[in-house]
Design a protein around this nucleic acid. Structure first.
Lengths: 193, 193
DNA sequence: GCAAATTAATGATTTATTCAAG
DNA sequence: CTTGAATAAATCATTAATTTGC
């Protein structure tokens, strides 16, 4: 936890036994179980794009039932999934940038588009309260109709968010000359939370 | 703190009285005092670019002496300052990308440059132990040669880091409508939650 | 069949843009 | 117009698939 010395921490070992059940394996990076992915995907399909801290926390807690997971994993998952879905769609429809109706755009970005390109031929704001519902659902998280069955996990819940990896690079062999290494995803990052 | 309702939370009010001493003013965003900026700038000049969590914590604590400040403020400050200094430098010297000796580049990026452009005419890794020194300095933070004088702050230390703003956008009026919403009603969709 | 070698996915970081408060 | 804050885009890096040679 100190500053230096922990070279390439990620290469270490830890009890990251998901799905397979092979305990004490490498713990390089989060490896979601199929259940976790399904849940996340469902939430995404339901309209969730950028979960709040609270939501991330809840989702994380819920998913920890199926295997090791941290809040940041959830955060990253949505970040990546959102971006890659957008990207995927872009490759398909080569429509003009101004005419696309990408609903993934966050408010600031959409607003900006409006301002700069005068675009939206169709009101992009006509809302659908889907996300709202999702939130509600999330709040009801704890109670589930189905008695879930955890594949075979021994250790679980490690929902702290203690910027691990990040430093390893910074203080690894190179010691980054003084310049830097970097930063944690937005707020979740700071360990002392 | 909940999910909805708090549209644009940041516009609220709170006791953010820094420097000026006007208590109970808007708490839109952090407004660093001159002392804080000076300290941060000094650290930057000393070579610090991307402080670690520990460093951020220490810096934040130290700066809270001069006024309200959160860890994230320190984080963002370095993020922005680094980027803007780089930007500034770019406008001045229009040197080829491959030839610039920007020490701000993170390891991965530098490595990548090496790989892709065969560039570095000069070993980019020849280290400068600046940050090392900075770290030392930071560790010795508590003791200062000069007896610091706090301008006039009443409330201080709010070093929690709870991603605020970020979510407000997600749940504001728009709610991201869903083109990706063909899917069935959430109920059953998320039933297994 | 089964590893080493490749390639495809995707988790995690970093940089670039943008929003908006003051 | 400066800059704190937030998000998107780019990219790095590791793990799982898949292919290939034996």
């Amino acid at each position: 936890m100190s500053s230096r010395g922990f070279t390439i921490k990620a290469r270490g070992l830890c009890n990251n036994n998901n799905g397979g059940g092979t305990a004490g394996t490498k713990c390089g990076r989060w490896n979601p179980t199929v259940e976790q992915v399904k849940l996340l995907t469902d939430l995404f399909k339901a309209g969730l794009r950028t979960p709040s801290t609270d939501q991330i926390q809840k989702i994380s807690t819920e998913l920890s039932f199926y295997g090791k997971i941290e809040s940041k994993n959830v955060f990253y998952w949505f970040q990546n999934h959102k971006a890659r879905e957008r990207q995927k769609r872009r490759r398909i429809s080569t429509v003009d940038f101004d005419h696309r109706q990408d609903t993934d755009l966050s408010r600031p970005y959409r607003d900006n588009l409006r301002r700069r390109h005068q675009s939206p031929p169709k009101d992009i704001f006509e809302v659908c309260n889907v996300e709202e519902k999702v939130i509600e659902t999330l709040q009801l998280f704890p109670l589930s109709k189905v008695e879930r069955v955890r594949p075979n996990v021994t250790a679980a819940s490690h929902n702290e968010y203690t910027r691990e990896q990040a430093y390893t690079t910074a203080f690894s062999t190179f010691s980054t000359c003084g310049a830097e290494m970097e930063h944690p995803p937005l707020d979740l990052q700071l360990s002392f939370l």
